[in-house]
Design a protein around this nucleic acid. Structure first.
Lengths: 208, 208
DNA sequence: AATTGTGAATTGATTCACAGCT
DNA sequence: AGCTGTGAATCAATTCACAATT
């Protein structure tokens, strides 16, 4: 039997929900408790109607004539995205980029924690932060934990092989920094972050 | 007078053109000189019809019954994207992420070169690679060079202020890693790379 | 015979316009 | 009066189906 057909939110709308969530946190931080679609849309650089349309995916949550309760809306978005509790993530490939992401303190405020890193040749010299383990510990680690998401920072030539290992271990979401198209089963989700492609894209659009 | 209205290629199509370009390079590397839309589409994980439609933005380039000339198609895409010559890029904010990107050897093969980096407090300890300069050198550096694109890796609280400086200096394309929505003039293009948003997105789509 | 190029059809996303609450 | 929620309308992207070309 296929997975139950949750009424799915379009990918672009999910991105924007993340964005709204970040803006709401900022508002909350400033002690603001209520916000109109117009104000929130401005903060997120989208149109108010698009914001309202996006929010209908969560059900009815605003109050006409008043706006949205900042706290409640943030909560509902977090519920929907599944980021209400701190989510464990593993990182594979502790090279330049991988090490930088390990050291980056920006994930936890957003609800993600890198619980372990893996590398073919883990350097023993580690300060604080998550343990860096050899690749052969990967399968057992994932099996014993609730981790479902991995950040993949290995070189392109190794990426497909490592992705296969991740999938075999039970990982179902991969944030892929390697500049290749990963082949994975249908039930595994891959998000690609490709810096060269982003630069090429910029390059095209700035040509005047 | 407004900029001449080049018949513009949709952003998503530009992304895919980058992707095709990468695949073509791989084919070329393997000594393959001709490819069908079906084969290339499979390599890029898109549908053949979409590939062909995307390529029509470049004009007519394939040969019916035969397919595409790998070399020629790669060339035309590079021409269109403006990545035929090595493009200079600056990087601002040499923290964890910025340092990792500086050390990352993956840009040059794709046609980009980080020609200088800037930081509020540049560390003197530098091995090889581009110079790391103090922020107050930014304006002069950009003025004297042909750089138009910048990679922005400063912390969120500084990002808008630094973006203003970049724009004032004449930068027209920004690859922004800071988790905020930058306000820039219309003629400046911003591409956002937001790791937390990518993770939240994954988080949603792996929920079963 | 094989494979591109493309108008037409379809699907999806965004915006509009206004009804419906508070 | 103010602001949300949403069906309808518009706009954009994708896919189909097949004519055109080698």
């Amino acid at each position: 039997m296929k997975r139950a057909a949750r009424n799915v939110i379009p990918r672009k709308a999910v991105y924007r929900l993340s964005l709204y969530h970040r803006c709401l946190n900022k508002l909350r931080h400033n002690g603001i408790t209520t916000v109109s679609s117009e104000a929130l849309a401005r903060a997120a650089a989208v149109k108010p109607t698009q914001l309202r349309k996006d929010l209908t995916y969560l059900g009815q949550i605003g109050r006409r004539g008043l706006g949205y309760d900042v706290e409640q809306l943030a909560q509902m978005i977090a519920d929907t995205l599944g980021t209400n509790s701190l989510q464990p993530v593993i990182l594979v490939g502790v090279g330049n980029l991988g090490a930088a992401l390990l050291a980056y303190r920006g994930f936890e405020p957003e609800g993600f924690e890198i619980v372990a890193a893996f590398d073919a040749v883990p350097q023993p010299r580690r300060r604080e932060g998550p343990p860096v383990l050899p690749m052969d510990r990967l399968a057992a680690f994932v099996a014993e934990s609730t981790v479902r998401m991995a950040v993949l920072c290995v070189p392109a030539h190794a990426a497909q092989e490592v992705a296969n290992q991740l999938v075999a271990a039970g990982i179902t979401g991969i944030l892929n920094f390697a500049p290749i198209v990963l082949a994975v089963p249908d039930d595994v989700v891959v998000n690609n972050v490709n810096l060269a492609i982003e630069l090429e894209n910029l390059s095209y659009f700035i040509q005047g």
